[in-house]
Amino acid sequence: MNEEMEENEEMAKLMIVFRTAPYGSIYAFEGLENVLIMAAYDQDISVLFVDDGVYAIKKGMDTTATGIKNFSPTFRAMEAYDIEKVFIDRTSMEERGLKLEDLVVEPEVVEAEAVEKMMEEQKNFFMF
């Protein structure tokens, strides 16, 4: 598989979709791990926040009392990894009482109708 990949110079469009709230389960954390790993492969990466996934990038997280690793600062690192295609579903954000200024990153706001098309454009995508 590795040999085949080296021959393939073309960048694949890949996307990570966050749809789960952080800390209550491990999915958002693992989504972020995948974003950072994917960035190392020099592909065309998009990141999308929908449903409870919008809470993964809320400002002001403090995990000291629980001892669970705070992965919020790592989202800010996405820019340093050249991940610029970051999107958030407007309805999910608004329904959950969030505004863009409440978020640790600056995603582009998209409408729900655009989501399936974004998924369809990818070579593959993962939902966390």
Partner: peptide, 18 residues
């Protein structure tokens, strides 16, 4: 194996089913 092998799978496979 490492998590990178999941990214490689996403690059190489026609379909990844979760």
């Amino acid at each position: 194996g490492g998590l990178g092998m999941l990214t490689e799978l996403a690059i190489e496979a026609d379909r990844v089913v979760e």
